[in-house]
């Protein structure tokens, strides 16, 4: 069986999720080919590689289609990323292939596949049976990246013309702010459960007594309660310090992707909130009730 992996290449660099996909594909298939669009160094991808000139563009579905027609793989793997999903959904629709998205696991089942997806903000799991050939859009962090790293078995360069309609004009770098949450050791993070912009102050105060900084989930940033630079998750930053204190955050996949802190403590009124699954410690409580008490207790302990 052959599997084609669509590499996530951003700013001419192969992203970690590519190796995760290649590792899984190597487990399932005899032959794995990774397709990389862009000038990235592809030598550490542990599979055969086809490299095509170009940029990160939704139009790359055309490139995938051409390579697919040549290789006739049983499955095509994409990363569930902002670039990958654009290409995957269009490729699957154009070829009328079965597709599973938000995937956390894939296995071979007879002539077809079984995929597990996590949906409904992390509250429901779904098993899907797909006919071969099929398309899988896999969540970041589902498989270990180590298995996909090594040295490329072969690298073939191809020229593929893509159609008009979308032109890449350039990258816009993230804004820089004085506070960089990705470098902070202690991060107090607020989600929609904080209720109101005025309550952000509570988090600021808690962060201050802990010597940390404040970040937030997408809805909080979308509402304008915190600047974009403070967003944690797929579209925002990754935090990797000692503590991530999540206040009123449900724990959607897109958010959790950005949480690599050593210790996660979560406060949520919903005892079934998915955030508790990635937490070292979880408290079922109303943040507005708990946080003022917590600030007081911390101050006592510190003798302030």
């Amino acid at each position: 069986m052959n599997i084609l992996v669509f590499a996530e290449v951003i700013e001419n660099e192969v992203q970690e999720i590519t190796y995760e996909l290649v590792g899984k594909a190597n487990q399932l298939a005899d032959k794995v080919v990774t397709l990389a669009v862009g000038e990235a160094d592809v030598n550490s991808i542990n599979s055969d590689v086809i490299q095509v000139e170009g940029e990160s563009s939704p139009l790359n579905y055309v490139v995938v289609k051409k390579v697919f027609e040549e290789l006739k793989p049983s499955a095509v793997f994409f990363g569930n990323t902002l670039a990958g999903i654009d290409v995957a959904a269009q490729f699957a629709a154009d070829m009328a292939l079965p597709i599973a998205t938000m995937v956390t696991d894939v296995s071979v089942d007879g002539d077809g596949f079984v995929a597990t997806s996590v949906a409904y903000g992390g509250k429901v799991m779904v098993d899907l049976a797909l006919k071969s050939p099929a398309v899988f859009v896999v969540n970041r962090g589902s498989f270990p990246a180590e298995d996909g790293k090594g040295s490329a078995k072969s690298v073939k360069k191809l020229d593929i013309e893509i159609e008009d309609g979308i032109e890449f004009a350039g990258y816009i770098k993230p804004e820089v702010e004085d506070i960089d949450i990705s470098k902070a050791d202690i991060v107090v993070s607020v989600g929609r459960g904080i209720g109101d912009e005025a309550n952000i102050e509570l988090a600021e105060e808690l962060a201050e007594v802990l010597g940390g900084v404040v970040s937030g989930s997408r809805p909080v940033v979308d509402s304008g309660w915190l600047p974009k630079t403070r967003q944690v998750g797929r579209s925002g930053k990754t935090v990797a310090g000692k503590l991530y204190l999540a206040l009123g955050i449900s724990g959607a996949t897109e958010h959790i992707e950005g949480v690599k802190a050593k210790n996660v403590i979560a406060v949520n009124i919903d005892r079934n909130a998915p955030i508790f699954r990635v937490s070292r410690c979880g408290a079922v409580a109303d943040v507005l009730e708990l946080v003022p008490l917590l600030i007081e207790r911390i101050k006592e302990v510190k003798g302030e």
Binding site: S56, L82, D164, F168, Y171, K173, P174, E175, S235, K237
Partner: peptide, 14 residues
């Protein structure tokens, strides 16, 4: 368009 990690791409779309 968001590309992840705060990075954006700018595209012209017909």
């Amino acid at each position: 368009k968001e590309l992840g990690g705060g990075l954006l791409g700018e595209y012209r779309v017909s």
